[in-house]
């Protein structure tokens, strides 16, 4: 009887620990972030400077998260300049984003993380898998801003 009780408690202990581990893995480190498992379509955009944007940074419209950055790579564009090619996944439920929307990289707060904000356009056609967002504006780099301000050649 006593051994039964002990075994029961040890079982509870192990289950608790596994639950804690799952919580740390899923909720804290976002290992299998639900948003990554959510279905979506891939959209690309080129930026001349992405600042501190990272994979898994969020993509928002008017502050609402609609997707995640999945991959960032360095590419040459048509004019043979280096650009950052950002792949992002937009969740399937946001499938009515006009094709002429523009993307810009913003910073949450003064020192916070970078994210992509999309300003919707007005066209009747919508973004779909593998489509490009043509209009982009790069991340605002604090140092650039300051040096521009100091040298005054605005």
């Amino acid at each position: 009887m006593r051994t039964r009780l002990i075994e029961l408690w040890v079982g509870i202990f192990v289950v608790l620990a596994i639950a804690a581990f799952l919580m740390l893995a899923l909720q804290v480190s976002g290992l299998s972030d639900f948003s990554l498992h959510r279905k979506g379509y891939m959209v690309k955009a080129e930026f001349t400077n992405i600042g501190g944007l990272k994979p898994r940074s969020k993509v928002v419209i008017s502050g609402v998260t609609i997707g995640r950055v999945t991959e960032i790579s360095l590419e040459k564009n048509n004019y043979d300049e280096f650009v950052a090619l950002v792949n992002m996944m937009i969740f399937d439920e946001f499938d009515k984003i006009p094709k002429d929307s523009s993307a810009k990289i913003l910073t949450s707060g003064l020192l916070g993380d970078n994210y992509i904000s999309i300003d919707p356009g007005f066209e009747e056609e919508f973004l779909h898998n593998d489509s490009y967002i043509e209009l982009t504006s790069q991340a605002v780099i604090l140092e650039d801003l300051i040096s521009k301000f100091l040298t005054g050649n605005n």
């Binding site: 909720q27 804290v28 480190s29 976002g30 972030d33 990272k54 898994r56 940074s57 969020k58 998260t65 993380d113």
Partner: peptide, 8 residues
């Protein structure tokens, strides 16, 4: 949560 998840 989301800041935590992107940092950890």
């Amino acid at each position: 949560w989301s800041n935590m998840q992107s940092a950890v």
